[in-house]
Nucleic acid binder design. Structure first.
Length: 460
DNA sequence: CGACATGATTTCGT
DNA sequence: ACGAAATCATGTCG
């Protein structure tokens, strides 16, 4: 986690901000000298300035230091600009300076002078600046925002949902599945990033408002002694905000990066394959081979299997996708497995039906109703095996699977060598599995077996 | 270490 | 959206 924290720190370059674009009284004077057009006004101003200039300097020198907070950074203080007389004695200045300053501030010409100056400034300085305004919502920052939102870093606190999901995942797997452990680990790290992000953001926001306030106070204060229009203050605030938002973007960028790294380290470990446990593959294989005629579990069936195997539905889908394609590609290879599970299901079916017939009256051994099979797969197993047997014979359903299994097991021992060489798939055996036959239309996927043979899955 | 097994992802068609 | 097929990438075994 060190790298992430490191990434997020180092953004606190606020010191540089203070000296960036903040009001510089000097610039006003510089710009003023550029304003040639207003010759007449300029003359008047010149005269007025000539009268007051010296006194103002001295008055300012006396007046400002005790009013401006020092903590925003000594030499960068905007008030310093333009002051000629450097060294100020610590001792007090004569009282008549105060009086002169007061007199100047109350001069009846002052408001008029300032308004004129402000006007000039509007026309020169501010109009130059005005061109680069109007930044639309930066697409990049929007992208970052979206990503942070998607990752759950920004946005509303979402402890409940994911926590519940994790709990469910942990509960689903009887054993503490390490996937859920990894997941919770991931979430913990994400929460850490999230927390850092928010605290940094808050810090910046606070700093921003503090700084803005400070500058505004400063400018308001200065507006008593130099012409500052409200618009100018507004502009200054906008500049400050832009500056801070660019820092925020850095923060967001860093956070995104951190999340990406985290993702690649944890969630993308989904690519880090982990074999399913034995019981899970057993369940899946059982379903697959017992539904060999149509190995496409419905959504409900997938959910059921997922729950049984403590995996996700999409994992079930993946498994069946892989299984189908691999089975189809090399039936011979899977024949042994198929037989194994056929025997398994047959035995299960036999057990179940035996129990059922024992419990019930021996008169009707499940003659025609597949709904009596409590196991989900037996119905289709019966179906498959019957079709594999060639014709639907009149054997009692409870015995059929066993018979067929034996039948097949004995016949298949040397049956599929030639399959790998040529593409001949001994069609008479596989006619029920039309899902794997790309040449035949998929309309005959499920032969007219006993009604409801593919259902009754949910009962389990 | 290499071959194979296997879960996940991607691409493409429907 | 689902599935087939190809492919990727890792786990496992000899």
């Amino acid at each position: 986690m060190d790298d992430q924290t490191r990434m997020l720190t180092g953004l606190t370059g606020l010191a540089g901000l203070a000296q960036a674009d903040v009001g510089d009284p000097d610039s006003v004077r510089k710009q003023q000298s550029l304003g040639q057009p207003q010759q007449d006004i300029g003359d008047i101003l010149q005269q007025i300035m000539a009268i007051t200039d010296e006194s103002l300097d001295e008055a300012q020198a006396r007046c400002w230091p005790e009013e401006s907070p020092a903590h925003w950074g000594g030499s960068d203080d905007p008030t310093e600009g333009g002051r000629a007389g450097g060294g100020m004695a610590g001792g007090g200045l004569p009282l008549n300076f105060q009086h002169r300053k007061h007199a100047l501030n109350c001069h009846r010409m002052k408001p008029a002078l300032f308004s004129v100056l402000c006007e000039i400034k509007e026309k020169t300085v501010l109009s130059i600046r005005g061109v680069q305004e109007e930044d639309p919502p930066d697409p990049q920052i929007m992208r970052l925002d979206n990503m942070l939102l998607a990752e759950g870093v920004s946005g509303p606190e979402k402890g409940g949902g994911s926590a519940a999901a994790a709990a469910a995942a942990a509960a689903a797997g009887g054993s503490p599945t390490d996937s859920s452990i990894e997941h919770s680990d991931y979430r913990a790290k994400l929460a850490q990033i999230r927390q850092i992000y928010h605290s940094e953001l808050e810090k910046y926001e606070q700093a921003c408002s503090e700084f803005t306030n400070h500058v505004m106070n400063l400018l308001r204060e200065q507006s008593r002694t130099r012409p500052i229009s409200p618009k100018e203050i507004e502009r200054m605030v906008a500049i400050i905000h832009r500056k801070f938002s660019s820092i925020q973007m850095q923060l967001k960028q860093s956070t995104c990066e951190a999340v990406m790294i985290l993702r690649s380290r944890f969630l993308d470990a989904r690519r880090k394959r982990r074999n399913f446990n034995k019981q899970a593959t057993e369940v899946l294989n059982e379903y697959f081979y017992s539904h060999l005629s149509n190995p496409y579990p419905s959504e409900e069936a997938k959910e059921e299997l997922a729950k049984k195997c403590a995996i996700t539905v999409s994992q079930v889908s993946n498994w069946f996708g892989n299984k189908r394609i691999r089975y189809k590609k090399n039936i011979g290879k899977f024949q042994e497995e198929a037989n194994l599970y056929a025997v398994k299901t047959a035995v299960d079916a036999a057990n179940v039906s035996a129990q059922a017939s024992q419990a019930n009256s021996p008169a009707t051994p499940n003659s025609g109703s597949p709904g009596s099979y409590s196991l989900s797969h037996t119905g289709d197993a019966y179906l498959n095996l019957r079709s594999l047997n060639g014709e639907g014979l009149n054997i009692a359903p409870s015995l059929q699977p066993q018979v067929d299994t034996l039948h097949r097991a004995t016949h298949l021992t040397g049956g599929y060598e030639e399959l790998s060489g040529s593409g001949l798939y001994t069609p008479h055996r596989l006619d029920a599995n039309s899902w794997q036959d790309t040449t035949t239309p998929p309309s005959v996927t499920s032969p007219p077996g006993p009604p409801g043979s593919v259902h009754s899955d949910a009962s389990n």
